[in-house]
Design a protein around this nucleic acid. Sequence first.
DNA 1: TTAGTATATAATGATATGCTTATATATACA
DNA 2: TGTATATATAAGCATATCATTATATACTAA
Lengths: 114, 114
Amino acid sequence: MLKTTIELEKAATILKLLGDKTRLAMMKILDKHDCCVCEFVAIFKTSQPSISQHLRKLRDLGLVKEERRGQWIFYSINKSNEYYPFIQQILEQLPSQDDKLKDLEEQGTRISCC
Amino acid sequence: MLKTTIELEKAATILKLLGDKTRLAMMKILDKHDCCVCEFVAIFKTSQPSISQHLRKLRDLGLVKEERRGQWIFYSINKSNEYYPFIQQILEQLPSQDDKLKDLEEQGTRISCC
DNA sequence: TTAGTATATAATGATATGCTTATATATACA
DNA sequence: TGTATATATAAGCATATCATTATATACTAA
């Protein structure tokens, strides 16, 4: 168990952000693998702008980082964020979302860009 | 670390519920002490209906239980809820809210009903 | 029974959220 | 340069959320 505590209001802000199934699944996936936007678009049944908007919210709080690699923009968990330990403890309790990525690989979608 | 995992959609629902500073503080307080509604009304700067509505949401998901004691209705954490371990790990990382209760005692407000 | 206290619920309104469509920007490549 | 691809942003809309005020219900005690 972690000893550190986190200010309650800040915790509420983070939990609210994680309290959306798309963002929560994104964070769970990102905790293990970097991903580009097109992968998320393929994984979740929603539009590209919707994915971008979710990522922006996560980025605005510093929970994820973005990095351009050529044509693509890869997102990764920001492990140096001061709230990462708090978030990680939550993510650890969630089932792996690797099956979602695996489905993409089988479809060949993941290989197309990443 | 807990071994159990929790369905992702259910986790998102719970996190969304906890993603409100009033409800999150309530849960943190309830994790240590039972409380009646009038205490919460005194602690938080909001109306009694607002408090009741927050408690209803927590109750609807089975996160808290209510118990009438005469004129008052006491709320307590529902430790037998299947998601309690998940919630507890989150609450553990938050700072104690005992100061809020202490303030009430000093004002004499807590003693009035509880 | 009546008055007072504690709590819940209903109705309403302001603001937030999350999606969609349309468009802008940046890169890759022929 | 022109076209295609990847991503971000803007605008608009439907729905959700959270507070407030008003009212209903339940219990207590005179």
